[in-house]
Design a protein around this nucleic acid. Structure first.
Lengths: 106, 106
DNA sequence: GGGCTATTTGGTCATTTTGCCAACCACCCT
DNA sequence: AGGGTGGTTGGCAAAATGACCAAATAGCCC
């Protein structure tokens, strides 16, 4: 892995890292239904506003969501919906694991 | 986000976290070409064997790779190839970001 | 058995990540 | 201007991660 590879994988990892947190996955899931303001998302998550705001800024920095300030509030929306396709794969991983554990226990 | 949601997103995050590291992304990329033993992967990564071994165990725990001990060495292979499809999306995110930054700088 | 190679595990330390609070900024309204 | 609401930022303590070394384990080969 030379220097060029390293920066390439680091950039990719930045995007993955942004999705490597339960709250942020939840936020993406909510935004899949349509844009929402920080206040709505905060209520749904059930954490401090500042916490949710920081999670959103991580997603934004990674390029996954976009923000749009309208009047008093900021609306976030998905910029790259293709991440939603990952869920099927993730569920596949989890199911395969569950199945395997069952088989091992038998 | 109730307790049930939380455990669901935590399980998903476990899979995402496993891929949220440059070295582990590199390992998955290598394994996409076919199985490889820890010694080969260690040489490719260029880090301590123990470090690579731990990265592989993270991937294994997440259910992304599988290990197979044959004689003296352990061969790892991809268990869920669908993660390879994510790269296109990640690259899409990165390209969109790059394009947008160019536009902003203009 | 003894030595050798391949891999995992335990321990330690430095770095990063998270979450909350408090303070601050931006916008709206009167 | 002054007050209220909605968000972001800075700071800090707690928790999680990552990398290396050293030690332990497992499977050859002689």
């Amino acid at each position: 892995m030379d220097a060029k590879d390293r920066t390439r994988y680091q950039r990719r990892a930045l995007v993955m890292k942004a999705l490597a947190h339960p709250t942020r996955l939840f936020l993406v899931d909510q935004l899949a239904k349509g844009e929402a303001c920080v206040c709505e998302l905060t209520a749904l998550v059930g954490a401090d506003v500042s916490t949710v705001s920081k999670h959103l800024s991580v997603l934004k920095y990674a390029g996954i969501v976009r923000d749009d300030k309208r009047g008093n509030q900021v609306f976030y929306s998905l910029r790259v919906p293709c991440v939603l396709n990952w869920y099927a794969c993730v569920e596949g991983v989890l199911e395969a694991t569950a199945r395997e554990q069952l088989a091992a226990a038998r």
